[in-house]
Design a protein around this nucleic acid. Structure first.
Length: 301
RNA sequence: GGUGCCAUAGCUCAGUUGGUAGAGCAACGGACUGAAAAUCCGUGUGUCCCUAGUUCGAUUCUUGGUGGCACCA
């Protein structure tokens, strides 16, 4: 196979607040291409301030995809992201030899690069029922059920993680087959080359940026945005850093100052979690966001 | 200036009837293929302010400092 004739998906990733957005505009300009956002929360048009969506002028400068494109009232997941991004990429690659994908949603990045198993959609009713049973009957009962339906997965799964157990049961019930028998554990092949560029910076520097960005969100009206979403707080999508802490404040569980501190701390925690995930990916080429020249050199060679 | 109280982890503090010490938060690490900014798991990181005593042994008791707080002048 001749790789030089294949288009390239350039992926710019890194922890929240590291400075991906600014650099992505420069790179996209350089290649005269478009940007696919890989952010599981910027997808939703109702969440703008709290997810640090790029400013309007940036969005006007370069066409962006998968940003503010969906509603929190619909169902979204990683599998759907895979399908939609691949479709979009096919169209974009017809015009651009290089397309840039930017974002920090770890699973979503992996899904575009390696794919996700082909499983049926889960009926929201079934999920609600299982979660209800988890609450009523306790995790042991559902564990025992999983052991019966899928002993293989039972021995692999983190038995203390309710979400994992529920999901396995969901698949067992909707397909009538063990979940484990449908897990391929192999990466899908892509018709394009992938180049991953990771951005990171000194931890203190990163944390300062995260903290001040939260202050900027507050100044931009995050409280008002969160208040308008407060009635829908039960939606999974709104179980997100920056919103759930303010919901707590609206409930009277803490002061506004405490909520803000909590948002900062949880954002820092999220950044750490992202780094943990990225660390084990050997394909990532790491840079400081200021190393523009070095990054362009790597890309064009 | 006088009197009293305080000084222990990055922060707020607990504790040791004298045998070198923990909680919360923060921090740090890990898992993770259909909720993923989700969900789950793990780790104490310390001149117990300094000094000199008493003692087998002092972070703990005593002396003298230093710093902080409160009250009185």
């Amino acid at each position: 196979m001749n790789n030089t004739t294949r288009p390239t998906l350039l992926i710019l990733l890194g922890p929240t607040g590291v400075g991906k957005t600014a650099l992505s505009i420069k790179i996209a300009n350089h290649f005269q291409t478009e940007i696919i956002s890989c952010d599981s929360r910027q997808l939703f048009k109702e969440m703008q301030i709290g997810t640090a969506v790029p400013e309007d002028e940036m969005l006007k400068q370069i066409p962006h995809h998968f940003i503010q494109s969906n509603s929190i009232f619909g169902n979204y997941n990683a599998a759907r992201f895979e399908t939609e991004v691949l479709e979009r990429l096919e169209k974009l690659f017809a015009v651009h030899p290089v397309v840039l994908m930017t974002g920090g949603s770890m699973l979503y990045i992996d899904v575009v690069c390696k794919g996700i198993d082909d499983l049926p959609d889960v009926d929201p009713e079934l999920r609600a029922t299982l979660m209800e049973r988890m609450k009523e009957e306790g995790i042991e009962r559902l564990r025992a059920e999983l052991k019966l339906l899928d002993p293989v997965y039972y021995h692999e799964v983190d038995l203390r993680n309710p979400v994992r157990i529920v999901h396995a049961l969901e698949i067992c019930y909707t397909t009538g087959k063990p979940f484990s028998s449908q897990r391929t554990k192999t990466a899908k092949q892509r018709a394009f080359n992938i180049l991953k560029i990771g951005l990171n910076r000194d931890r203190t520097e990163l944390y300062n940026r995260i903290n001040s960005r939260v202050d900027e969100m507050m100044a931009a009206g995050l409280v008002e945005e969160a208040r308008s979403l407060y009635p829908y707080r039960e939606l999974n999508t709104l179980n997100t850093v920056g919103y759930r802490e303010l919901f707590d404040y609206f409930d009277g569980n803490c002061s506004l100052e405490e909520a803000i501190e909590k948002i900062k701390a949880n954002s820092r925690k999220y950044a750490r979690k992202q780094l943990t995930w990225f660390r084990k990916d050997p394909d990532i080429h790491w840079f400081h966001p200021d190393q523009e020249a070095e990054i362009l050199h790597l890309i064009t060679n």
